[in-house]
Design a protein around this nucleic acid. Structure first.
Length: 605
RNA sequence: GGCCUCGUAGUUCAAUGGAUAGAAUAGGAGUUUCCUAAACUCUAGAUCUAGGUUCGAUUCCUAGCGAGGCCA
């Protein structure tokens, strides 16, 4: 912010002149003044007492006097203990606000020439998307938007886990029980395939139980645990799935054809869900193309002496220097592990997109995995390794505990969104504010509100923390919610429409003469001016929650302004113009911030 | 067992080492001849425990307790 820089410079100057001490302007930290005290900006004196060799109150007094004398924009000050609170002139606020309104790129940073890749979603193709995926998708999409606003060239990618034993399980169950079923409008492809995955598990459990009885009869005296483990390995349907996987790897035509068919059903289902939730990707990767990558890197690591081979030919990396243990990179029989693949994919990504940062939006159960991946790529001197960042997020749990797709306790993504849309519809109907909407407009609004509520709910929380989701009461439409923010936008749109109708000029020229501001107006300008900092902070921390909380704070400040101060009832034309302009700027900022969260805002609601 | 993350009002979330720990919700009390009451105002309510570093700790360090996760 412009005037804060001036204050810092002046404080630095004051230290030289008053105390013969050197304090660099850029090292000086200012913070917002607490609401209970007079002033807008606060300088904390405590850390400098050794330099000034005076009591905090005295130091504050001297600095305060200096600033008032030397800086026009500081009109007054007060000192409370070690805190110097500064009052900023109202002309300064009006000027600052006027600059903001004229900056068409406010909150967007120019291209910085750096590329970044954000990998998110990364679903398995054996089941539909659920609540946990929603958190992932919203986070990934939002972080991409935030980084783009910070000037990065962002590529959003989805690495689909389309092969492996899980999809083979669905295939086996489909072959056995599918009767040639195909997706229908009422049963999307991902749901259909997911149902067969569940069916597989049911059959598998049945077979285990049967086998266990048989083994128990045959082997009296052997502990049940052992027998059960054996049954789990020997169940015919599992064998069949493993056999299917082998056939797939050998390129067996019938197997590959069925695999392709079932996956294509799933992709159609996912496309629908992604569209519904409003997320997009620039590029897809498929594990069926990447799962064999990485073996050459293992070799490279051995040659460089970073990895080593054990007697059974397995390859390992020793991470004890980093406080971790040894990690397997290639099995004795030469087959890959997940890490092998991820190493290969990391190189592939870099070849495709030459990025300085590579963000992986993946749940926190993989913290260890990504820690290791990042260390390994550094050991291999990959230039992008420093930029690897695991955006780790906590699970979304239900009151009943963890969601388990096999046990049917998942909250399905589509279902949840549709329920939210219904809730939005009901609430809107109760309020009866949109009678003039046609059906299409109404549907668009319901969707906007539903997704606004849901996205805000999942994004306002620090990603690291796990979320307890109570389907009955969690996502609200009142209070600290996405809908509250959207509501403020709609209210402002009504103001702006009226201003246009009344032909009110709210350009800077019309309000530059304003000399007196209400405290709430200063608060709103102050918040508006902080928008760019918040964008930077959110980009630095990969934290949409910072944007979400900011959007709420701004809305709340505006709401208070709206309730307490008249706009069109104001007699002074300049003030009236100013208040319209202030409203308009808040709406613009809300819209921008919400867009970074992947959320749209309505003009009426 | 080893390692990682989290622990703040009844509940869901905030707080670059700064002042009297903010919101929302649920509870209590109010506000609509005035621009959208999905709102606003007032009220009551919390830092897991014990040490340490610091002028100052929700924040950093150590130990413990509790929740979740990862690795065998």
């Amino acid at each position: 912010m412009d005037f804060e820089k001036k204050i810092k410079e002046s404080i630095s100057q004051a230290f030289t002149e008053l105390f013969e001490a050197t304090v660099a302007a850029e090292d000086i930290q200012l913070q917002p003044t607490r609401k209970d005290f007079e002033g807008s900006v606060t300088f904390v004196i405590f850390p400098y007492l050794k330099l000034t060799r005076k009591k905090p109150e005295e130091t504050g007094q001297l600095l305060g006097e200096y600033l008032v004398k030397n800086l026009d924009l500081v009109t007054d000050f007060n000192v409370v203990k070690g805190f110097l609170n500064l009052c900023i002139s109202e002309q300064t606020w009006v000027k600052l606000f006027s600059q903001i309104t004229q900056d068409t790129n406010f909150g967007f940073f120019p291209a910085n020439g750096e590329k970044v890749m954000v990998e998110y979603s990364s679903p398995n193709t054996n089941k539909p998307l659920h609540l946990g995926h929603l958190r992932n998708n919203f986070l990934g999409y939002s972080v991409s938007q935030i980084l783009a606003a910070n000037g990065y060239d962002v590529l959003k990618v989805n690495l689909v886990n389309d092969r492996g034993i899980h999809i083979c399980k669905s295939m086996v169950a489909y072959k056995k029980f599918g009767n040639g079923e195909t997706p229908t409008p009422g049963r999307k492809g991902d749901k259909l395939v997911g149902d067969f995955y569940v069916k597989f598990d049911q059959e598998y459990k049945k077979e285990i139980a049967e086998l266990l009885e048989q083994y128990k009869a045959e082997n009296p005296g052997i502990p049940e645990k052992e027998l059960k483990a054996k049954a789990e390995k020997e169940a015919p349907i599992l064998k069949e799935a493993q056999d299917t996987l082998r056939k797939w790897e050998q390129g067996d035509e019938a197997t590959v054809t069925l695999w392709k068919k079932m996956n294509s059903w799933v992709y159609d289902g996912f496309d629908f869900s992604y569209k519904l939730m409003g997320v997009t990707f620039d590029k897809y990767y498929y594990e069926s193309n990447t799962y064999l990558l990485g073996k050459d890197i293992v070799e490279e690591g051995q040659q460089k002496g970073v990895f080593y081979q054990k007697e059974d030919n397995s390859v390992w990396v020793d991470l004890s220097e980093e406080g971790l243990d040894e990690k397997l990179l290639l099995r004795g029989d030469g087959t890959s592990v997940y890490m092998t693949q991820d190493m290969g994919t990391a190189d592939l990504k870099f070849k495709d997109w030459d990025m300085t940062k590579s963000i992986y939006v993946v749940g926190n159960e993989q913290d260890y995995h990504f820690k290791v991946l990042s260390i390994i790529m550094k050991k291999l001197d990959r230039e992008y390794a420093e930029g690897i960042y695991h955006l780790s997020y906590g699970m979304v749990d239900l009151p009943s505990g963890k969601m388990k797709s096999r046990e049917g306790t998942v909250v399905d993504a589509d279902d949840l969104i549709f329920e939210m849309i219904d809730t939005a519809k009901e609430r809107t109907a109760t309020l009866g504010k949109i009678e003039e909407f046609d059906n299409e407009e109404a549907q668009a609004l319901y969707r906007m509100l539903a997704l606004g509520a849901l996205k805000y709910y999942l994004l306002r929380v620090d990603p690291k923390k796990r979320i307890l989701f109570n389907p009955q009461e969690s996502v609200d439409f009142q209070g600290n919610t996405g809908v509250y923010i959207q509501y403020n936008h709609a209210k402002i749109c009504a103001i702006v429409r009226k201003a246009e109708r009344d032909q009110i000029d709210y350009s800077p020229a019309a309000f530059q003469s304003v000399e007196q501001l209400h405290g709430i107006e200063v608060d709103v300008i102050d918040l508006l001016s902080k928008y760019p900092e918040k964008i930077q902070e959110a980009g630095r921390e990969y934290a949409p929650s910072i944007i979400a909380n900011y959007a709420y704070e701004l809305s709340k400040a505006y709401s208070k302004f709206y309730a307490e101060l008249p706009i069109f009832g104001e007699q002074d034309e300049a003030i009236k113009s100013f208040r319209v302009a202030l409203s308009k700027e808040v709406a613009k900022t809300i819209e921008k911030a919400m867009k970074l969260l992947g959320t749209e805002v309505p003009e009426r609601m």
